[in-house]
Design a protein around this nucleic acid. Structure first.
Length: 122
DNA sequence: ACAGTGACAACAT
DNA sequence: TATGTTGCCACTG
């Protein structure tokens, strides 16, 4: 990514979440050295709505980002909670009736600081 | 420049 | 367990 804005860094991290795993808004913020900026991560995901035309953003697995309780709390997107749950199930992640994921099972380990450092290169 | 906003998180009831 | 409250901070207009 040539851009180094916070949002661009967020998207770069989300692209690294493997299929079958999930992480939380807050953990992504922490990985980027901005603990407490969880709300911005959610806002960045929401902003994807306006970038649907740009192929650059079409392969971002946004569905793998949920809240710290493991629950789906999507809002203001072209998708709804049920659709996100379905996408996660396609990933092989179990989603309960009340739209919750077992973080003990599916939480992504995250990126090491070395990997975070390299995000801007590509 | 600056106040409003939100796909959060932690804590208090 | 389930709501309600408060702090949070980068983006937006």
């Amino acid at each position: 990514m040539t851009e180094s804005s916070f949002y661009q860094q967020i998207y770069a991290v989300v692209l690294h979440i493997p299929r079958g795993k999930v992480t939380s808004y807050g953990r992504i913020a922490s990985m980027l050295g901005a603990p407490g900026a969880a709300r911005q991560v959610g806002y960045a995901m929401s902003a994807l709505r306006y970038k649907a035309d740009d192929s650059k953003y079409n392969n971002i697995p946004w569905q793998r980002v949920i809240n710290s309780q493991g629950k789906i709390t999507i809002k203001g997107s072209r998708f709804n909670k049920l659709q996100q749950a379905e996408l996660l199930r396609e990933d092989g992640v179990e989603v309960s009736e009340d739209l919750k994921v077992d973080l003990d099972k599916y939480l992504w380990g995250g990126l090491s600081w070395q990997e975070i450092e390299k995000l801007g290169e590509s």
